[in-house]
């Protein structure tokens, strides 16, 4: 893990050199955010609308997932506007931004989970390893076997721990016999850091585990299918700090083999686990850059306001 500095450190680092001297220190922000500044933020959004270009660098080396000019509509609501982003293997990309900015929607585009919403319409192209995921020849079932997803609220099936992990391999026919399936289940639980805790009670219901264990069970369930990409939608928001730390360590290990895209509301978490950060605002991708750059020297004022706690 290249970067474990907490966000406060970033704040201390950038405040002395603060580009805008009229701004109050972060401590007083919540009480002193006056209407004038809100207007200035709105103006900035308007301005960026005109410019419409994402700052920073949306491209990366050896991109595995390439999303080009993605627009998402929920009925008449234009939820995501012209987002372009490249994601490489073996790295964690964090999507941050205030609630309702479209980061979860973007995440759900990557494994076509938006298909299950009748009113949702996605335009633009997304390629996974060079293959268009919206092409007729690619079944969403096959896509989702390659792009796993972990949800905000731990959602194990009301089945045994074993069956939870074995479910994916079973439906995809990944194991030829029981021994092979056992092996997959054990390896997946091992890699999710859960095997030690549940080794003797694999037949107990998965719903009987604690919240953090349930989330790791969901991760084990996801990696049991052997995906290439793992999408995580605020995987730690329902967990306590200890469980969160375990999941974050796990992400770090998993990033050696998978491309991981994580949506998070915690900037500390984004700073700790990701190599690149994408900042969304009102359906637009405002800025993408190396994590260090985003937290220490963001190019866009909205990004700066968000990471310093002024908005969001």
């Amino acid at each position: 893990m290249q970067n474990l500095r907490p966000i406060n450190e970033y704040r201390r680092m950038r405040d002395p050199a603060g580009s805008n001297s009229t701004r109050e220190s972060p401590v007083m922000l919540s009480s002193s955010l006056d209407s004038q500044e809100e207007v200035s933020i709105e103006e900035e959004v308007e301005n960026s609308d005109a410019a419409s270009a994402t700052l920073g660098n949306v491209r990366c080396d050896n991109p595995y997932i390439v999303a080009e000019n993605i627009d998402v509509f929920y009925g008449d609501n234009h939820a995501i506007q012209d987002v372009t982003l490249e994601i490489a293997k073996n790295q964690v990309v964090a999507l941050i931004g205030p609630s309702g900015c479209g980061k979860s929607t973007f995440l759900r585009c990557l494994n076509r989970m938006n298909d299950s919403i009748d009113s949702a319409r996605v335009t633009g192209t997304i390629t996974l390893d060079g293959e268009n995921i919206h092409s007729k020849s690619l079944d969403p079932v096959a896509l989702r076997a390659r792009v796993g997803m972990v949800f905000q609220k731990p959602n194990p099936f009301p089945k045994s721990i074993y069956d939870n992990v074995a479910y994916g391999p079973r439906i995809h026919g990944l194991a030829n016999d029981r021994a092979e399936l056992d092996n997959i289940v054990h390896t997946s639980l091992e890699r999710a850091g859960l095997l030690k805790e549940v080794k003797n009670r694999l037949d107990d219901p998965g719903t009987g585990l604690s919240g953090g264990q349930q989330q790791r069970l969901c991760i084990a369930r996801t990696i049991a299918v052997d995906p290439e990409v793992i999408l995580m939608d605020e995987p730690c928001s329902a967990l306590d700090p200890i469980a969160t730390a375990k999941i974050e360590d796990l992400m770090d290990e998993l990033s050696e083999n998978y491309a991981i895209v994580i949506v998070t509301h915690s900037m500390q978490q984004a700073a700790r686990v990701s190599r690149r950060v994408a900042y969304f605002h009102l359906g637009k991708l405002i800025e993408v850059d190396e994590t260090d750059k985003i937290f220490t020297n963001p190019s866009h004022k909205l990004t700066e306001d968000y990471v310093t706690g002024r908005i969001g």
């Binding site: 494994n111 299950s116 096959a142 796993g148 959602n155 099936f157 439906i171 369930r221």
Partner: peptide, 17 residues
């Protein structure tokens, strides 16, 4: 709960599964 459906869908289960 829809979360159960989403979990299964995200693992690559077909709608019938």
């Amino acid at each position: 709960p829809p979360s159960i459906r989403e979990a299964a869908l995200a693992l690559g289960a077909s709608r019938m599964q």
